[in-house]
Amino acid sequence: MNARQEAAIQTPLRDVATKNMDPICWTAELIGRGTGHTVRCLKRIGLPRIVWRRPRRADSLEDVLRRAILAETARTGIALSGEEIRELIGKIVELLRNVFSGEIGVGAIPSVAELVRSGSVFSDFLVPMIRESGGLSESKREMLRRILEDNLQLRQASLEAERQ
């Protein structure tokens, strides 16, 4: 990947838009290949075409990828933490770079769905939570106590209404 391509991958689409350039043409220029090849790359990765075709102006490639991953996690119910999503984006960007530089062919790119599935370690999301619960700070414990108090009052009112 050359310096121009490296710079282009970081370019917010807003800047692409000011050049009045179609994002597909922008990517094609970035790859140095035709638009057909570019579309095949993006389709293979599984980026929803509509998301790609109508990017938000402030979006960078990473933003577009993030949205695709979020859509996939919402669709499949597979949970990824923010950090996992960031890692995954890094992985996809790396793959794109390899495709762009011609190191790997389009067929070797896993789809976003496959990446999301392979990258899913929900326990990673829970582990810090459970670890933290061992040592609840006083302020957190107080907050939880207040929640309990509120809910006990609600429950009491509810039981009284039921009795009446």
């Binding site: 979020l70 996690t73 919402a74 949970a79 933490s81 923010g82 999503i85 999301f125 829970l126 939570m129 459970i130 933290e132 619960s133 609840l136 957190k140 414990r141 939880l144 106590r145 929640i147 309990l148």
Partner: peptide, 23 residues
Amino acid sequence: VDEPVYAGANGALKIANDMPDSF
């Protein structure tokens, strides 16, 4: 936030998890 759709459910789960059994 990173996960706009799940942020509420994640937080509610964290509260449930932190809530002592006695509560």
